[in-house]
């Protein structure tokens, strides 16, 4: 059985109020079905506004879809009993794109990471502190960072804190919503490396949402392509992405810059990407 199954999910935004009788909703997801196996990473590629983040929110249980089901280990996350939902919650974590807005500016790193621990684990003060220090060290920070506030960290460091918070409960699945997109190239590589290590160590699964083909290729096992709310392609192996003839995929592939400027003319680009 798959860890997570998304079944025919359809969702649209838009509201009806007293002054706005007409239904002017906009469809953002239509009839999406996919599944994530335990210990694997599904990369979801798509342009801005394709509905990637909405799908992430739906999977996280933040936004109830109008139709369809999200099954986590066989339980529907929106209709399951409360105690099952609480268990599911703890196994589903998230790292957002904007590391600054994902942490409360008035909390120290220690309190940020402590939040999920306080809610689920009943640890003593000393145990909790030890766990937090271990987590910080695991993501490449140290004990001196415990008492620092978010504005004292760089974007990359803060993203590490977000990752530490996400793995603190040893979840099964982490939704990475453009988690590396706002970082510089060096930090991107480092964070991707860290994520890959954590995946091995904890047996994590990832749902990796991105518009960056290279980072998706680096970390994913399977790949999906989302375009205007529709899942146009879903590959069991990420290499199929480079042989697909779907026009959306071809367009995406065409946007990859060659390593060497010599290959950056339009004509040689197609030839070059085929050879990757």
């Amino acid at each position: 059985m798959s860890l997570l199954q998304v079944k025919e999910v359809t969702h649209s935004y838009g509201s009806r109020s007293i002054f706005n009788w007409k239904d002017r909703s906009k469809k953002v997801l239509s009839d999406i079905s996919l599944s994530i196996e335990e210990g694997t990473c599904l990369g979801l590629l798509g342009k801005s506004g394709a509905g990637k983040s909405t799908l992430g929110k739906v999977i996280l249980g933040l936004e109830r879809p109008q139709n369809g089901q999200i099954l986590f280990q066989g339980h529907d996350i929106y209709t399951a009993d409360n105690h099952i939902r609480k268990k599911i919650r703890r196994n589903l974590q998230v790292v957002f794109q904007d590391s600054y807005s994902s942490v409360n500016p008035r909390m120290t790193a220690e309190r940020i990471i402590a939040e999920p621990l306080e809610n689920y684990e009943k640890l003593t003060v000393a145990e909790q502190k030890r766990t937090i220090v271990e987590l910080l060290e695991r993501v490449g920070l140290s004990e001196v960072d415990l008492k620092k506030y978010p504005h004292q960290f760089s974007g990359g460091q803060l993203q590490r804190i977000n990752i530490a918070r996400a793995i603190s409960l040893k979840p099964k699945l982490i939704v990475l919503d453009e988690s590396v997109s706002s970082l510089d190239m060096v930090n991107q590589t480092l964070i991707l490396e860290l994520l890959r290590e954590l995946k091995e160590d904890f047996g994590l699964s990832y749902f990796f949402i991105t518009h960056d083909i290279k980072s998706a290729y680096t970390i994913s096992d399977t790949l999906g392509v989302l375009e205007k709310g529709e899942l146009v392609e879903l590959y069991g192996s990420k290499n199929q992405f480079f042989t697909s003839e779907h026009p959306v995929v071809k367009e995406m592939r065409g946007s990859i810059l060659a390593e060497h400027p010599r290959y950056r003319s339009v004509r040689t680009r197609e030839k070059h990407t085929k050879s990757i």
């Binding site: 933040l62 994902s102 689920y120």
Partner: peptide, 8 residues
């Protein structure tokens, strides 16, 4: 959103 997901 992160706090909600953290179970608060």
């Amino acid at each position: 959103a992160a706090a909600k997901i953290s179970g608060s």
